[in-house]
Nucleic acid binder design. Structure first.
Lengths: 223, 223
DNA sequence: CACTCCTTTCACGCGCCGTTAACACAATTC
DNA sequence: GAATTGTGTTAACGGCGCGTGAAAGGAGTG
């Protein structure tokens, strides 16, 4: 589950609905020591920091988030139009901002954008609830990290590259395993099974079987 | 002078003032062929793409910008609240967006943020508790100096330049050691190991192993 | 040359995970 | 409904990738 930090307490009411809608868990804190004590094992995926009430404390919190061990937490600032110039002096302290009062749909879109993409120009393949980051070799389903082995990842990546298309076991063996691979076709089955089980019961049907042909990711377009 | 691409023609009037204020040069285009023909020698630093008029053409242009050789161009979308959901399906096609009608100060702040962060000409690289001074060849962890040898430093610097990204041993050998280096891949392992030990038990996990792929600095965002 | 530090290589061992086989079950054909 | 073919499921073997320690080159210094 994706965890998001919210600062300060007062900002929670407006933000909570959007976070719930995204299926993210969240926690409000007022200072850095409180934040440090309540960090989940997976770390914060993002932080929403309202600047308006006390800009200095907001920036201090952002500075702390940036200096932690897991420096991968994206920071989104909430700021009124009047205080916008303040952000210009701390341009490295945040990844995105949203003007207050905000439209829920805008905040949702910004969070969505921020939590899926890491910054920079990286290659991410997406299909429905599934996201594959080719550079970091990481996979996500429903914003949850998937712990895949090498072969599982390679297979899933190959399938995701052409959603809806059916691949025979022989094609998969030669394309994913290597053109010179020599081995039984049932190997594919086992990997498909492990993928399905790791995708979870809810998303196991992302990979569908086409009897006596092969496997396919997602549904065919006209079904 | 930073050059910015603007699409389509109609969006120019609203955007021009802000770009002039930032001291950036800009050019309006209506399609990709026009954009391809007018790219300056330094390349586009950014692109402002208005979605509202013709979403499909806007996304097409963004796709083109992303697919070029110089993939360093940041893309900012201008979109009305009604069309906001459209963006969710193309989350990798842009770096930031701004709701229309927009406050000039907001667009200015977003462009500022987008364009400044792109040219990172800093002598100090920082990632979490780790900081590397490229000029003085010094490294610090938790504000304590790290005594690294030449190769250790070069390797750590290369990894830190792209946090989260996985590098194979072959890539590391050719990029850090030199394209004409001839030697065993296990050499990388040993250097990684010494780096980990010098980082200390607390921070040894800054460098993680991706089995049968390579190494990566930091656990990327989704873990 | 003697010494030290850095780099590279080799060998060993452990643990993961890819592969296979065997069986149960579902689907298709007659 | 039986026979046949295709797929799901499970468990166990075995290879190989990687951490680890040690020791052999190599370069610089006195």
């Amino acid at each position: 589950m994706t965890s998001v930090l919210v600062h300060p307490q007062g900002a929670a009411t407006a933000v909570a609905k959007v976070l719930d809608l995204l299926g993210a868990s969240w926690k409000t804190v007022d200072d850095t020591t409180e934040a440090a004590g309540s960090e989940p094992s997976g770390g914060w995926a993002g932080a929403i920091v309202a600047v308006d009430d006390d800009p200095e404390r907001a920036f201090e919190l952002a500075r702390w988030v940036r200096s932690r061990e897991q420096a991968t937490t994206s920071i989104l600032m909430l700021v009124s139009a009047e205080l916008l110039p303040e952000l210009g002096d701390h341009t490295t302290l945040f990844d995105d901002f949203c003007l207050t009062p905000f439209h829920p749909a805008e905040l949702e879109a910004r969070l969505d954008h921020l939590l899926i993409r890491s910054d920079g120009d990286d290659a991410i393949i997406t299909y429905g609830p599934l996201s594959l980051n080719v550079e970091t070799y990481q996979a996500m389903i429903d914003r949850r990290p998937l712990d895949l082995t090498y072969m599982e990842y390679e297979l899933l990546r190959y399938l995701t590259a052409s959603p809806g298309k059916v691949f025979s076991r022989e094609i998969l063996l030669s394309e994913v395993w290597g053109y010179d691979y020599y081995g039984g076709a049932r190997t594919v089955d086992v990997h498909i099974r492990r993928l399905r089980s790791k995708l979870g019961e809810e998303h196991a049907n992302l990979i569908s079987t086409v009897r006596s042909v092969g496997y396919r990711l997602g549904q065919a377009k006209w079904t």
